[in-house]
Every structure is written in C-alpha cells, then in structure tokens.
C-alpha cells in the first residue's frame, strides 16, 4: 500500500505506477529476431551468389521500408502521438518501440550492404561513373542520418524503454525523451525525401 502511494506521488498525469504500460522484459522484441535472421541470410546469399536481381530487390524493398517507416513515424505518427493522452501514448510506445529497435537496424544494414554490392556491380560507386557525384551526395545524407539516428534517436528510444521498466518511472523524463525521439524522427523523415530524389535521379 505504501509502495502504491509513493508510486502515485512520483507519477504525474493522473497515472498510478501500477497502471503504466510496460515494455517487454527483454526490451527488444524477440518475436522479430527470426525476421532479422532471414533478412541477413537472404543478404549473404545474394552477395555470394552475385545475383543482381536479388540485390536490387533487397536494396529497393528494404530501402523503401526504411524511407516509408521514417516518413510515417516522423511526419504522421509523431504529430498524432504528441496529441494523444499520456496513457495511450505509453501504450503505443511500449508496443511499437521494442519492434522498432530491431526492425530499423536490420532494414538499414540490408539496404546499405545490398546498395554497396549493387553499386560495385553497376559501377556507380566508381569515380568515373557519370552519377558518382549523386552517390557521394547520398553517402553524405546517409552519414548525417546515421549520426542523428545513432546519436540521438535510438538512445532516446532505448532510454524511454528502460525508464518505463522502473517501478516508478519518471514520466516527465519519458515525455522529454519522446519529444527528442519524435523531432529527430521528423528530421530523418525529411532527409529521406532527399534520398528519394537522389535515387530517382540515379535510377533514371
């Protein structure tokens, strides 16, 4: 009883500690790991086989997933999340973020490795190729995106999940970290638009 009272006092927004949605004990979604293994095996087989169609599929499909997830999360889910009641927001975060922490690194790695291999096969990675400057521009954009994603976005995501595992999470801190996550997701979404332009230019 005493614990419940302390929990209620520590948690703002009318939520008592017992009512706060919690992320899974494992933090990452274990159910998504077979998808990761399949994706990486497919990637390795495609690289070793040297099949251009398989590499193109991996680069286009996973690249599209990366772009769409960033755009959707940053420009659609983000603003909606900001207007949701705190409990609904936490329900969404605790279900969505564990999956995102597995899906995004996988999608990014498959896209980049397949793209690198494809670039070598097609020749756009070589400095003599007429579209080489566009590829370098994409490197610069992806580099900045990697810094935002790994330096701000993903740390905020993980910190929120671990904070919500505490018996009495600091929801003010969770709110600040979520804002950080949503803003950076929006920036990543906007930067993805420039990747779309570059890739459309290279492919046409």
């Amino acid at each position: 009883m005493a614990d419940a009272t302390v929990g209620a006092a520590a948690v703002p927004s009318g939520l008592v500690a017992g009512e706060i949605p919690r992320p899974p004990r494992t933090i990452v979604s274990v159910a998504t790991l077979p998808f990761v293994a399949l994706a990486l095996i497919y990637l390795l087989v495609s690289v070793i086989g040297g099949w251009r169609w398989a590499l193109t599929f991996a680069h286009v499909a996973f690249g599209a997933a990366w772009t769409i997830i960033d755009l959707f999360l940053g420009l659609v889910i983000g603003p909606i999340l900001g207007r949701m009641p705190i409990r609904a927001r936490l329900e969404l975060i605790t279900r969505l973020m564990p999956k995102m922490s597995v899906i995004m690194p996988t999608v990014v790695v498959v896209t980049l490795v397949a793209g690198f291999q494809l670039g070598l096969q097609v020749g756009v990675l070589y400095s003599i190729h007429p579209y080489h400057a566009w590829i370098l521009a994409s490197f610069a954009v992806v580099g900045v995106m990697a810094l935002i994603a790994l330096g701000i976005n993903e740390p905020a995501n993980l910190a929120v999940l671990f904070e919500l595992r505490k018996p009495e999470p600091n929801l003010e801190l969770v709110g600040q970290l979520m804002r950080r996550f949503i803003y950076t997701a929006g920036i990543l979404g906007i930067m993805q638009l420039s990747i779309l332009i570059i890739m459309a230019r290279v492919a046409s």
Binding site: V6, A9, A10, K166, E168, N170, L173, Q176, L177, R180
Partner: peptide, 14 residues
C-alpha cells in the same frame, strides 16, 4: 533512489 529526484529533467541528469 528514484524518489530523491522524481522530477529531474533529462538535461539536468545529463
């Protein structure tokens, strides 16, 4: 203890 700083901001902790 969590109770010692229940409203500490992200920047203050950093």
């Amino acid at each position: 203890s969590q109770d010692a700083r229940p409203t500490a901001s992200a920047s203050a902790q950093e």
